[in-house]
Amino acid sequence: MTMVRNYVRATPATALIAAVCIIAWLITAVQARTLGATFYDSPLAADWGLWGPDYPFRPQAALSSEFMHLDAGHLAVNMIMLLLIGKEVERTLGTGLYLAAYFTSCLGASAMILKFDFNTPTVGASGALFALMVMLVGAYRQRGLNLRAPIALVVANVAYTFLADGVSLWGHLGGLCTGIVLSLFLYRKSPVFRWSGVVAVTAVLLAFLAQQAGVWG
């Protein structure tokens, strides 16, 4: 328990995101009455999942889908990645900026899915995780650490995305691209520049998502 308390104290945003994902999945498991593919028999999963044709009626799915998972294995892999990578990025950026960048990354992954994979139902934190992997490179660079490990992590996961079945290609690429754009701002010296960059990227993504939801256009 001491280790958990220390983790939460040091990186509260990462702990909170993981807790929301785990609690959401547990609810779907209860609703579906299984520890297997909970997504397909859960009303919460249907409400939170991202699916293009249904998106105008559930625009919150652009964010909520990143907190929903297909089954226990899907959840476990993503949470391990989140707890390891998120910890390092949050410690570097600070909790507030990290949380803003994480939510923006969720929106970026969803925007890419709606643009290029409209008819495929999608859930999972991996879109945002791809953004965090890019941010981890920036965190290592800022600390003066060897960049080979985080770069290898990004390359390996991009390769896996193209080679594996059942993963969201466009969700992963959306997160990756969002992470790259955000990293142009996140590691600048000026706090105003860092926050302004995140706000600008978020505004662009929200405008696109609003258009996709039929708010205008």
Rank of each mutant, 00 (worst) to 15 (best):
A37F: 14
T38F: 05
Y40G: 11
Y40A: 12
S42K: 02
S42H: 08
S42W: 12
P43V: 05
P43M: 03
L44T: 01
L44I: 06
A45Y: 12
A46R: 13
A46S: 13
D47F: 14
D47R: 10
D47K: 06
W48C: 07
L50S: 10
W51I: 15
W51M: 15
W51L: 15
G52M: 13
G52Y: 14
P53Y: 11
P53G: 14
P53K: 14
D54E: 15
Y55K: 08
Y55T: 10
Y55N: 10
Y55A: 08
P56S: 04
P59G: 03
P59Q: 04
P59V: 04
A61R: 07
A61W: 05
S65G: 04
E66H: 10
F67M: 10
M68R: 03
M68N: 03
M68T: 08
H69M: 04
L70P: 06
D71Y: 06
D71G: 02
D71S: 06
G73I: 11
L75E: 00
A76Y: 09
M79A: 00
M79I: 05
I80H: 04
L82G: 00
L82A: 03
L82C: 01
L84H: 04
L84I: 09
L84S: 09
L84W: 08
I85K: 01
I85V: 11
K87P: 01
E88D: 06
